[in-house]
């Protein structure tokens, strides 16, 4: 591969890599952060970068937005970008906000139940509950279990 094709390959792919970096930042927030609201925001970032990757596939060099003139007289020389990814991502955005809303409602409910929205605290509380239950079970079975 000579240097000009390598350069072309790099320019053609660097935006994909940037989107992947964004995606991984979102994933990192989801995995590493203990706060649930933060996790949801991370999920949103991940999601939006997937949208960017998807939309960038539909881009055509020198193309314009796929909207025709109102009189529907189409100039055959005009290049239009691919409308299909746009349609799919429109659907995905709305589904994304639906999942975000549901997740946030769950957070509100968790906060009401446990008084915290931190993963660490909730794990601790649940371990406490499990310990108590084990204790009760052991007492009820007379230490035979």
């Amino acid at each position: 591969m000579d240097s000009s094709t390598t350069w072309e390959f790099f320019v053609g792919h660097v935006s994909y890599w940037l989107f992947i970096v964004l995606m991984m930042t979102g994933l990192y927030i989801v995995v590493a952060k203990g706060n649930f609201v933060k996790k949801i925001v991370g999920l949103n970032i991940f999601q939006t970068s997937v949208f960017m990757l998807y939309i960038s596939i539909g881009k055509v060099d020198g193309g314009t937005a796929p909207i025709y003139p109102v009189d529907l007289n189409i100039d055959p020389d005009v290049v239009y970008s691919n409308p299909l990814p746009h349609v799919l991502i429109l659907t995905a955005i709305v589904v994304g906000i639906a999942t975000t809303a549901l997740g946030l409602a769950l957070i509100v409910r968790i906060r009401e139940e446990f008084g915290s929205i931190e993963e660490d605290d909730i794990v601790e509380i649940e371990q406490g509950i499990a310990r108590d239950e084990n204790e009760r079970y052991r007492n009820a079975t007379g230490n035979r279990a």
Binding site: G58, A65, I67, S81, I89, L90
Partner: peptide
């Protein structure tokens, strides 16, 4: 997205 021609998105 506007830069990528996806105005609706």
């Amino acid at each position: 997205f506007v830069g990528l021609d996806a105005v609706d998105v």
